[in-house]
Nucleic acid binder design. Structure first.
Lengths: 108, 108
DNA sequence: CGGTATCCGCCACGATACTG
DNA sequence: CAGTATCGTGGCGGATACCG
């Protein structure tokens, strides 16, 4: 991830947070508030390899977008959930989606 | 630039369009509607090298975000201006900026 | 003035295999 | 179940020099 604090303009902080091949997908999967487990992401995103999935999750965690809760049961359970900051991202992602839709219509 | 048409979710089309080290800056420079010349970008963004600047401008042009008008005077004059699609991006960039501001306050 | 041409380093992303 | 470990690579961004 690009260092958000050497961005030229503020908005690049946000871009830095959600730029990452699978981050938008991950945030969207968590968008309904339900805590989700590692295997759930693998099921929804079958193309992402474990290493990459872990990497993207960790970067979002470090950015404060989601939390990672470990329940030391047997077998172990790990749950990911959006933080308040992550939830604040949702309207923006929706705006990105809406713009993309009208854009695709015009360009394609 | 990542191919916008093999994105997993629609919003990544938008991310693909504005992801690029200097693209947000370029769009913001053009945000007031005034046509701007190549040298103007170089003056505002002294760190970007000519090759990179050209590259970022071309990618935005190919994405339909801005137009490139050549006036074959002597010396030649080239002017860049936002398209309608590019203008539609402005509220989104502002939303990114606003989110970044509250985010920076919380995290830093 | 507004670019090209050439060369190159870095690192995000990935394939594959293995593990506490 | 939820991850590491290792090795590999494509292409974005950059430094530097040159051009119509």
């Amino acid at each position: 991830m690009m260092d958000p604090f050497q961005a030229h303009c503020e908005m690049e902080v946000t871009l830095a947070v959600i730029s990452g091949k699978w981050k938008a997908d991950i945030v969207q999967i968590l968008s309904d508030g339900t805590p989700r487990r590692y295997g759930f992401f693998q099921k929804i995103l079958p193309e992402v390899t474990p290493k990459i999935l872990t990497n993207q999750l960790r970067e979002l965690e470090n950015a404060g977008i989601l939390t990672r809760a470990i329940y030391p049961e047997v077998p172990v359970r790990v749950e990911y959930q959006l933080t308040e900051a992550g939830t604040g991202l949702l309207p923006i992602l929706e705006a990105l989606e809406i713009w993309a839709q009208s854009y695709t219509k015009k360009i394609r």
